[in-house]
Design a protein around this nucleic acid. Structure first.
Length: 213
DNA sequence: CTCACGATTGGA
DNA sequence: CCAATCGTGAGC
């Protein structure tokens, strides 16, 4: 929803329990600023049949200009193109030939940056999740590759806008109650060799779905 | 065109 | 510890 949208009403009208984060402005800030604020937000995955899965974001990492671990560190390429595009779109890439990773593009246009979503807790277990792994429900989206598998996200979604509209596949809703600072842990990122000392990973302290305490 | 490797995961 | 598995990006 935007100010030009006929459905838009002034901020003081019709109070809602949650606030949609479709506004690109909210994402158009440096990724290390946006990342911790995404914790506790609700990621909503919607399928063509209208079914929805709501997930709490429990672990994130920021990637930004000047950061050697960032895919956009060197130059714009075919793969990292959407990282340089408008904030509030998603950057989905294939890793190790088998898994996918979901990012939310941040900051101004031309600035290559994003927030990697590393873990979620699902409110409901999707039926396509095989039970033979015997993974506890808390762990089905415990990792960037696992959460894309659980929500059936792949490179075909690369570049899509986060939008809470009918027929859209993905969006984010912010809870009106901010997470207490004491519930958030900030530490170094996982699985990288360069920039490994930069403390740009945040997670919810007591969440069972985070990668590593 | 070739080729080394990765923001991961699960299993030995 | 190590293999799976393939798109990407750098180098020739």
């Amino acid at each position: 929803m935007s100010h030009s949208d006929p459905a838009f009403q002034s901020p003081c009208s019709s109070p809602r329990k949650t606030k949609d984060l479709a506004e690109a402005d909210w994402f158009a800030r440096p990724s290390p600023e946006v990342a911790p604020e995404l914790l506790g937000c609700t990621l909503v995955r919607q399928f063509a049949d209208g079914s929805r899965y709501r997930c709490e974001i429990t672990e994130v990492e920021a990637y930004a200009p000047g950061d050697p671990a960032c895919h956009a560190y060197k130059r714009q390429t075919d793969r990292n193109r959407v990282m340089f595009g408008a904030a509030g779109h998603i950057y989905v890439y294939l890793i190790y030939g088998i898994y996918h990773c979901l990012n939310v593009v941040t900051d101004a246009e031309e600035v290559g940056s994003a927030v990697l979503i590393r873990a979620l807790t699902l409110d409901e277990l999707p039926p396509w999740i095989s039970d033979k792994k015997r993974r506890k429900p808390d762990r089905v989206a415990a990792g960037p590759g696992l959460l894309c598998m659980a929500l059936q996200l792949d490179r075909s979604h690369n570049g899509m806008a986060l939008s809470p509209k009918e027929g859209e596949a993905l969006w984010i809703e912010k809870s009106d109650r901010p997470i207490p600072h004491s519930d958030i842990v900030q530490t170094t990122r996982i699985g990288i060799t360069q920039g490994a000392d930069i403390p740009w990973r945040w997670y919810l302290r007591d969440s069972p779905s985070v990668s590593k305490p």
